[in-house]
Design a protein around this nucleic acid. Structure first.
Lengths: 192, 192
DNA sequence: AAATAAAACTAACAGTTGTTAGTTTGCTAT
DNA sequence: ATAGCAAACTAACAACTGTTAGTTTTATTT
């Protein structure tokens, strides 16, 4: 029972790493197998298809984002505190599972029918919740009355591509990252 | 002469659009041909290989970024003015050629040997130049003394993924985009 | 009208793809 | 020891890949 899961998990981990490097379509089942020192056919003792691997990588993380965002939206904190929690959410998941996050960002379009629709729904829900938070912040005079979409995508695009930066030589440690990120995204970089 | 170029340009444009949607590896020569209402073999009257298409899409734009960044670095303006020019550069290219930009961002790793090395060199040069600008800004007391890498990747990741947002229903017009983007990235979103 | 060249076509290739069927290996519990 | 079973293997498939060769169509120039 645990053995099956262990091996399956291993496939998913290895696949996620390869998908990050070359993208879903460029990675073959033989690539994944070779990285595990087995033959491609052996993978099918553990997984149903290449598609299933992608689904398992993406959906779990997407659900985690969706759920935490839902909790944040319905909490009774200040807008700034909410945004800080969202920043923290992205940093946490990036540090824990950068490869899966890369897949979610780059390979979601290779999900098929049902899962694709599910993913898109979650992503739209996530963005809409973010929009709600910022709108309330503007109404409450916590956030500057700038173009809503520009605010949303400035923050989200940075958070979503964190996986690209983390792990590089020059990337800061977790604590420095969090506090500096909050500073930069909320208060800007210019001295007045 | 112009006719050859026209058809070749058309291939590159169509390919860039498809590459943006599904990624380089998932797009076949038959896909590109079908989108142009011809057969795959006919493409080879105009281009040498699938690889060449990718190179033509990516390298030209990468060189434009590199060159303009070089001009900005060596100019005698304030740091803030320099950053504003870089923001403008990204917005301009995004509005002009979002598809090619998507390729550059997602498919650069499928370039082969020579071009891959060339691309990576340009990208590192670009980031290093950006680093130089921010460092000087901090030294001159124009920019807050926050973690250099966090500043760099907050701004760059937003600018680099602009292509994902532009064209959507809710995305603002060009002027609103530029001014709001400068506001958000430089001054932040919080009211103090 | 004939000649030339560009750009489309058909047919096919050799290699790669995800996946299946059937078989062998190696560990675990009786 | 042996039965049972998870997990590896080999061999093969049909479909698809980028690309080439050779041919026909289309458009332009003489």
């Amino acid at each position: 029972m645990t053995k099956i899961n262990d091996r399956k998990t291993e496939i998913i981990t290895v696949a996620a790493k390869l998908f990050k490097e070359k993208g879903y379509s460029a990675v073959t089942m033989r690539d994944i197998a070779q990285a595990m020192d087995i033959k491609a056919a052996s993978l099918y003792n553990h997984i149903k298809s290449k598609q299933e691997i992608l689904v398992l990588i993406i959906v779990e993380i997407a659900e985690e984002f969706t759920q935490t965002m839902d909790e944040v939206v319905h909490s009774e904190e200040s807008t700034i505190k909410k945004i800080e929690k969202i920043i923290q959410l992205h940093i946490d998941i990036t540090l824990r599972d950068a490869n899966a996050l890369a897949c979610l960002n780059n390979d979601w379009m290779h999900l098929s029918d049902t899962e694709l629709a599910y993913f898109i729904k979650m992503r739209e829900e996530y963005e809409e919740n973010f929009r709600t938070i910022i709108k309330k912040g503007i109404a409450d005079n916590e956030i500057k009355n700038l173009n809503l979409e520009v605010i949303i995508f400035s923050i989200l695009s940075t958070l979503r591509t964190l996986y690209l930066w983390y792990g590089k030589k020059k990337s800061p440690d977790s604590k420095t990252l969090t506090s500096n990120m909050i500073q930069v995204l909320l208060n800007g970089i210019v001295i007045h």
